[in-house]
Amino acid sequence: MKVNVLAAIASLSFAPSLFLPGLVAPAFAENVEHVRQLLSTKECSGCDLTNAGLRLANLTRADLRGADLSGVNLDQADLTGADLSGANLTGAVLFRTNLTGVNLTGANLTGANLNGAYLAHANLSGANLSYANLMGAFLGNANIAGALFLETANLQGVQGLPTGVLQPEDYYRIGYENARVGNHAAAMDQYNQALKLNPTFAAAYLGRGVTRLQLGDTNGAIEDWTRAETLFTNQGNENGAQISQQFMTATQERLRASRRRSGGSFVSLMNSLVPLLLQFLVF
Rank of each mutant, 00 (worst) to 15 (best):
L89G: 09
T90V: 12
T90I: 12
T90R: 10
G91T: 14
G91F: 14
A92S: 10
V93G: 02
L94I: 08
L94F: 14
L94T: 09
L94M: 13
R96S: 05
R96Y: 08
R96P: 00
R96D: 01
T97P: 05
T97K: 08
N98E: 09
N98D: 13
N98A: 12
N98Y: 09
L99G: 06
L99Y: 08
T100N: 06
G101V: 09
V102P: 05
V102A: 10
N103L: 11
L104R: 05
T105C: 05
T105Q: 10
T105N: 02
G106Q: 05
G106K: 07
N108C: 04
L109H: 09
G111C: 11
A112T: 06
N113Y: 02
L114V: 07
L114H: 05
L114I: 07
L114G: 03
N115V: 06
N115I: 04
G116Y: 05
A117P: 00
Y118V: 11
L119N: 04
L119V: 06
A120K: 10
H121A: 01
H121L: 03
A122P: 00
N123R: 06
N123P: 00
G126N: 03
G126E: 01
G126F: 06
G126Q: 02
Y131L: 06
Y131F: 13
Y131H: 13
Y131M: 03
A132S: 07
L134C: 03
L134Q: 02
L134M: 08
M135E: 08
M135H: 08
G136E: 01
G136T: 08
G136R: 05
A137D: 00
A137C: 06
F138R: 03
F138Y: 09
L139N: 00
L139Q: 01
G140S: 03
G140C: 01
G140N: 04
N141V: 04
N141Y: 07
N143I: 11
N143D: 10
N143P: 00
N143H: 04
I144G: 02
I144E: 01
G146F: 11
G146D: 04
A147V: 12
L148K: 15
F149R: 15
F149V: 11
F149A: 12
F149N: 14
E151S: 15
E151H: 15
E151Q: 15
T152K: 09
T152V: 11
A153E: 09
N154P: 09
L155Y: 04
L155Q: 08
L155D: 01
Q156F: 15
G157M: 12
G157L: 14
G157R: 14
V158K: 04
V158W: 08
V158S: 01
V158M: 03
Q159G: 08
Q159C: 05
G160S: 05
G160W: 10
G160P: 04
G160Q: 06
L161K: 00
L161I: 15
L161H: 00
L161F: 14
L161T: 07
P162M: 04
P162G: 02
P162R: 08
G164H: 03
V165R: 07
V165Y: 07
Q167P: 03
Q167A: 13
E169P: 01
E169K: 15
E169Y: 13
E169I: 15
E169W: 14
D170Y: 13
D170I: 14
D170L: 13
D170A: 14
D170C: 11
Y172K: 15
I174P: 00
G175L: 15
E177S: 14
N178L: 13
N178Q: 13
A179W: 12
A179R: 11
A179E: 09
R180S: 15
